[in-house]
């Protein structure tokens, strides 16, 4: 009878607020210099990294020190004129993950016209498979993450009609599991990250009827551990990025109140690096922009004052989603 719960122990002296100035400095310093080791070695995820950093800044009511024009100029150079897709950085190959991130940034800055949006639409359209699923790029890896990327990108561009939405929905529905969760492909284990992708996908396609609301919300709220943090699957350690994936899904399902918000806030606060700024996956680990944006976005869903309101489906500032008149579906 000795099942131990995997969890972390929080220290007693946690800063109970968001250290905005530190985080803004952290993000701005991070994205400055190709000769900086951490930054230079991660060029293969650059555009997504920019999306994390720029969204984090926006949620903190700040703007990039380098200037928005430079960002837009860089994205333009990452579009492949042939396929229309966008790559992680100049010289690398186009991929749906970075295509979405680029479109999210440009939508946030009201600069969608800076790129060839018809090219992007053509690219996404070309990645849909006969079974409705989406490949990540021309080499054919299939994953429900890519289904979500596809509909998010196309809805931001108001071009949902170029794909077979019904088949796309069928594929995502075929990835639903007995526990109400979703995996990356049919029969794949439920995982909070992929649940967010599939629930987000269904909220954009207005097909949340496919979700088993009560069962899934229960599975999701059981992700909360005694430390207050959320894990991504049963018997795993808590992690700040899961705060976002679990919480956004619960919000879309209208069950945000099923977890202990105060305990989760405390866990997220504890993941701040009080010296360098930024959030880490767990207390005491190295901070990075990825966990910083998801920590902030989760706090936004929990109603933390002075963080911009975030949209649970798009992980973008709510005011941008309102401006684009996008209305993803939510359950009550």
């Amino acid at each position: 009878m000795a099942t131990l719960i995997k969890d972390v122990k929080l220290s007693d002296n946690i800063v109970k607020k968001v250290l905005f100035e530190k985080h803004i400095d952290f993000i701005n310093d991070y994205g400055q210099d190709e000769n900086n080791y951490e930054y230079g070695m991660t060029d293969y995820l650059r555009i997504s990294g920019m999306y994390w950093a720029l969204t984090a800044l926006d949620l903190m009511n700040s703007e990039p020190a380098q200037g928005k024009d430079k960002v837009v100029e860089y994205i333009k150079q990452c579009q492949d004129p042939q396929s229309g897709g966008i790559s992680a950085c100049i010289g690398h190959d186009p991929h749906i993950l970075h295509t979405l991130s680029a479109v999210q940034i440009l939508a946030m800055y009201d600069q969608l016209n800076a790129i060839d949006t018809d090219g992007v639409v053509r690219y996404i359209q070309g990645l849909q498979q006969p079974d409705g699923s989406f490949a990540g790029d021309k080499w054919g890896e299939i994953d429900t993450r890519f289904s979500f990327c596809a509909v998010m990108t196309l809805s931001l561009l108001k071009k949902m009609d170029v794909i077979n939405v019904e088949k796309a929905v069928d594929f995502v529905a075929s990835c639903k599991n007995f526990d109400g969760g979703f995996g990356s492909r049919p029969l794949s284990e439920s995982h909070a990250g992929l649940i967010y992708c599939c629930v987000g996908f269904l909220s954009i396609t207005n097909r949340l009827d496919i979700v088993d609301q009560e069962t899934l919300a229960w599975w999701l709220c059981e992700r909360q551990l005694p430390s207050g943090g959320l894990n991504g699957r049963p018997e795993k350690l808590p992690d700040v990025c899961y705060s976002w994936w679990v919480l956004s899904s619960l919000t879309i399902l209208g069950r945000l109140h099923w977890i202990d918000a105060e305990a989760l806030k405390t866990f997220i606060f504890a993941c701040q690096d009080t010296e360098t700024g930024g959030f880490a996956d767990r207390p005491g680990d190295v901070a990075d922009p990825f966990h910083t944006v998801f920590g902030l976005a989760a706090l936004s869903l929990l109603g933390y004052e002075s963080i911009q309101k975030v949209n649970p489906t798009y992980c973008m500032p709510q005011r941008i989603i309102d401006k684009l008149e996008l209305k993803p579906q939510y359950l009550s």
Binding site: A217, W218, C221, E222, Q224, P226, R255, H257, W258, I259, D260, A263
Partner: peptide, 10 residues
Amino acid sequence: DPMRKGQYQQ
């Protein structure tokens, strides 16, 4: 299980 009281109360 007070952490999930929102669910039980509902």
